[in-house]
Design a binder for these strands. Sequence first.
DNA 1: TAGTTGATTGACT
DNA 2: GTCAATCAACTAA
Length: 209
Amino acid sequence: MVEKEAASIIWPGKPLSRAFYNRAATTLAPRLLNKVLAAADGRAGRIVEVEAYVGAIDPAAHTYRGKTPRNAVMFGPPGHMYVYFTYGMHWCCNCVSGPQGDGCGVLIRALEPLHGIAQMRAARPRTAHDRDLCRGPARLTQAMGISGAQNGIDLVGAHDRFAIVDDGMAPPGDLVGSTRIGISRGKDSPWRWSVPGNRHVSGTASQRG
DNA sequence: TAGTTGATTGACT
DNA sequence: GTCAATCAACTAA
């Protein structure tokens, strides 16, 4: 019950403005660290790892070659959720960042579970340790109940199912971008950020920094 | 139309 | 460390 009360504080929480998202992904991405991804059913986790994908200048971005049915949401208004299906089985979740039409977004790679942890465990019954519930982009979508049905929903305005909110914790200081994980092109761009020392960050020990 | 890849994970050696 | 799962999107022809 304590958990449920805490979740009610997070949800709907203090919403982030559309202007917050309406900036280059590389500027927005580290500012998303320590914000909270919250679901209407009470599940919530602190964002501890992100990667920026920067539209037409980024060969690793889905939007690099222009607009397609799959990536159309990325070209839409900032603050919306772009959810895509990959490796035949996994969903990954991005927050669109502006300016509108540029195809920029931020991949949310890891959360530190805060609330609704029992529901996260139920969604990932084979996960032995809570540390791993949201450690990785496809794990967190499964734990939070995010799938293609949520592609395109508004994280700023309607707040009907999911939202990214500010609960007062500032992003970490001394942020340094590192290279992104799991891509074959655009490897050298330092567009990945994480909360230093946080155990819920994905990747190997050397990648976690 | 056929072949390859992928913003990953989990199981296994 | 290696590798299979599994399919939508993309690329080449």
